[in-house]
Design a binder for these strands. Sequence first.
DNA 1: AAATATACCTTGACAGGCGAAGTATATTGT
DNA 2: ACAATATACTTCGCCTGTCAAGGTATATTT
Lengths: 115, 115
Amino acid sequence: MIIASDLIRGNTDTIILASLMMKDSYGYEINKNISTKTDGKYEFKEATLYTAFKRLEEAGFITSYWGEQNVTARRRYYSITQRGKEEYLKLLNDWKNAKNMIEKLIDTGVMENGQ
Amino acid sequence: MIIASDLIRGNTDTIILASLMMKDSYGYEINKNISTKTDGKYEFKEATLYTAFKRLEEAGFITSYWGEQNVTARRRYYSITQRGKEEYLKLLNDWKNAKNMIEKLIDTGVMENGQ
DNA sequence: AAATATACCTTGACAGGCGAAGTATATTGT
DNA sequence: ACAATATACTTCGCCTGTCAAGGTATATTT
């Protein structure tokens, strides 16, 4: 998994909501898309992913429904709600702030490059 | 505290090690410096800070010694070790990778600005 | 018939953050 | 003189999120 999960923690919900901003999707697909986007460097552990879905649904940020009977296994699709969209924007902003703050705090000048 | 601690988690050790890269310091001072640098937006909770010191010392990344008797309360100073310096560089690199990955995963184009 | 891929779910352990409470000294305010 | 505040460190126990491990079920490939 290469990337320490404690560095992703706090962005889990944002990542899931971002995926659902595009279109309704289901756990397995979301995870595969993440894997593709990161060249296989990251993927949620299943338990983490499904725990997150439950948390987000209970909070009213997403809703779910069973997909049509399909060729492979059954799929539970998730859809982002209006409140979820608002939350996503808030989380995006939180990340922006946290990121800037962290950079300010961990930089000692040893890595001489602005990006 | 404005900033969600789950967004900082994973950078706690890096922030402390970064502080000690400059000079030996003690908990209270490190925390005040963080508060100053962030315009009061962030500060470790005491329990978090001292837990982190213990963790880092057990891992061999820092060492500690009691400061000279001084005008106010007694101070336990921390010093970064050679292994701690190497760890700091590693953590800095981990952060850089995680940051890029997160940005890639949470961006949907709704916030139209490159920074 | 077995292996693999798709797809979801739950339990229990573990680690880090932190509220709360405690200890001790020096300075500042009234 | 006494209280409040600032400095400074420590420990206990709870909470939350991650995740290893196990389970269920179907379709395709070997």
